[in-house]
Amino acid sequence: MVAYLLFALTLGGIYGLLALSLNLIWGGAGMVNLGLAGFFAVGAYASAIVTGAGAPVPVGLAAALLAGVAAGLVVTFSTLRLRDDYLAIVTLGFAEVVRLVALNERWLTNGSDGISGVPAPFKAALGIAGFNLFYLALVSGIVLVVWALLRRLDGSPFGRALKAIREDQELAGFAGKPVLRFKLQAFAVSAAVAGLAGALYGHYQTYISPDHFQPLITIYIFLAVSAGGVGRPSGALIGAYGVVFFLEATRFVAEVVPALQPVQVAALREMLVGAALILVFYLRPQGVLPERIPPAPRMS
């Protein structure tokens, strides 16, 4: 039972990083990334490949950050000048291409077999229970650092400029903000955080494969961010832990609704995820933690 809790909390932290990543661009600049799973994969593979070649884990994490940035630039390069729906469609396609590359480029990614034996730092020395504790601490620590950095960013001139862009891109442009550069930077940072989450996942599970990175996880993260409150890093984090709890809790549907085939229970569970997302949009359009918008200066 303890192992299960540690696992859920660690996973919550990794989802939390993804949620922070999405929140930065969605809450920050009004852009969406429907290919989060792809960026998650890019980071996981980058770190697994680099550490597989003998580099230590911190170098792997750095490689994941860089790979995330690079992927982010590729995706945003041709879409930033366009309406945000184009970015949404392109990111969705990007995730599929990442999956195809991971599946087919055997020389790099070991193809559909996936990469097993991704180094789990200190697992041999700490034992299984010790490692689980250590890794929870590691992930939680990294989540805290990223959260603190993003909060500062949120309140910085850069963050305020992003929000201006979100509210009215043209107006922000007239006001002299370099809109495109800001959006590009925001997306790159966000992609890097998603990549980092992927690397942490890979080193935790010690195994990654193309099957890991399917679109459903992107929906989970959207649910996390919108439930927590778009635009608030703390909300995104709370939402992520909440989603892990929710996903696990839906397993017990089987006990509540008897006389269903297992496949129907599985279908019900996925319906619940979709329904939850729509309900959150209805009931709490602002999420658990509404965005704080400073009052406009009063004209006297």
């Binding site: 009004g30 729906d85 959207f222 996925e270 979709g274 997302l277 729509i278």
Partner: peptide, 21 residues
Amino acid sequence: ALTVAIATIAANLILENVTRF
């Protein structure tokens, strides 16, 4: 529009699973 677009993903998931159910 973006919120609606995301909601359509959720709607898609629900409808897909209704047919599965």
